[in-house]
Simulated assay, not measured.
Amino acid sequence: MPVHRPHIETAVAIAEEANNSLWLGHWLVELARVRRAIGDPAAALDILHRAAALQRRIGDRSREATAIDGVGEAYQDLGRSAEAVDFHRQAAGVHRRLGDSWQAAVALHNLATALAATGREVEALPVRQDVLTLLSRFDDARAVDLRQLIEQA
């Protein structure tokens, strides 16, 4: 009788069995998102550290930065926003250097949120403005929602 497990965990297992680092790196980040969504940020944190290290080994700077930003989000979920700041800052810098305005905006938004949560609202203000500038290039619903969220802050 086969063992029942969620599809995302099956995808991770398939990637591991196939020894496919590209697939594994992707699915680990997705698994971490699921773990955060169900209220298990500690597990997500471990998974994201693994994903970032894997992406670093295979040389995918963009996906590594996405995992690093996720580490910051997991720290925020754990109420450890001060620790999140450096992860978000690092991720935003990588995405900027790679020319990925959308991912840079997301990481900068996370940075501003972490800064504000640590009482550093003055530092968060120019970061939010930077996000708005980056988002001006996008007109999709996610960008509009993110702009509104920042403007409300």
Rank of each mutant, 00 (worst) to 15 (best):
residue 42 A to Q: 15
residue 44 A to Y: 00
residue 44 A to D: 00
residue 44 A to L: 01
residue 46 D to C: 03
residue 47 I to G: 08
residue 48 L to C: 10
residue 49 H to C: 14
residue 49 H to P: 07
residue 50 R to S: 05
residue 51 A to I: 09
residue 52 A to K: 08
residue 53 A to M: 05
residue 53 A to W: 04
residue 54 L to N: 11
residue 54 L to Y: 10
residue 55 Q to A: 03
residue 55 Q to T: 04
residue 56 R to G: 08
residue 56 R to L: 09
residue 56 R to M: 05
residue 56 R to D: 14
residue 56 R to W: 08
residue 57 R to V: 06
residue 58 I to S: 08
residue 59 G to M: 10
residue 60 D to F: 05
residue 60 D to S: 09
residue 60 D to R: 11
residue 60 D to E: 12
residue 61 R to S: 12
residue 61 R to W: 04
residue 62 S to K: 12
residue 63 R to V: 02
residue 63 R to K: 13
residue 64 E to A: 06
residue 65 A to V: 02
residue 66 T to P: 00
residue 66 T to F: 08
residue 66 T to A: 14
residue 67 A to E: 14
residue 67 A to N: 15
residue 68 I to Y: 05
residue 68 I to L: 02
residue 68 I to Q: 06
residue 68 I to G: 02
residue 73 E to M: 01
residue 73 E to Q: 11
residue 74 A to Q: 07
residue 74 A to N: 08
residue 74 A to E: 01
residue 76 Q to T: 10
residue 77 D to R: 01
residue 78 L to P: 13
residue 78 L to M: 15
residue 80 R to A: 07
residue 80 R to F: 02
residue 80 R to Q: 15
residue 81 S to N: 10
residue 81 S to K: 01
residue 81 S to D: 11
residue 83 E to G: 06
residue 84 A to H: 07
residue 86 D to Y: 02
residue 86 D to E: 13
residue 87 F to A: 01
residue 88 H to Q: 04
residue 88 H to I: 01
residue 88 H to K: 01
residue 90 Q to K: 09
residue 90 Q to R: 13
residue 90 Q to A: 11
residue 91 A to Y: 12
residue 91 A to Q: 08
residue 91 A to R: 09
residue 92 A to M: 00
residue 93 G to I: 07
residue 93 G to K: 07
residue 94 V to N: 04
residue 95 H to T: 03
residue 97 R to Y: 05
residue 98 L to V: 09
residue 98 L to I: 13
residue 99 G to N: 11
residue 100 D to K: 12
residue 101 S to N: 15
residue 101 S to M: 04
residue 101 S to I: 01
residue 101 S to Q: 14
residue 102 W to Q: 12
residue 103 Q to K: 13
residue 103 Q to N: 15
residue 104 A to D: 14
residue 104 A to I: 06
residue 104 A to T: 14
residue 105 A to W: 10
residue 106 V to Y: 00
residue 107 A to C: 04
residue 108 L to E: 09
residue 108 L to V: 04
residue 109 H to W: 09
residue 110 N to V: 01
residue 112 A to R: 05
residue 113 T to C: 06
residue 115 L to Q: 15
residue 115 L to M: 11
residue 115 L to S: 04
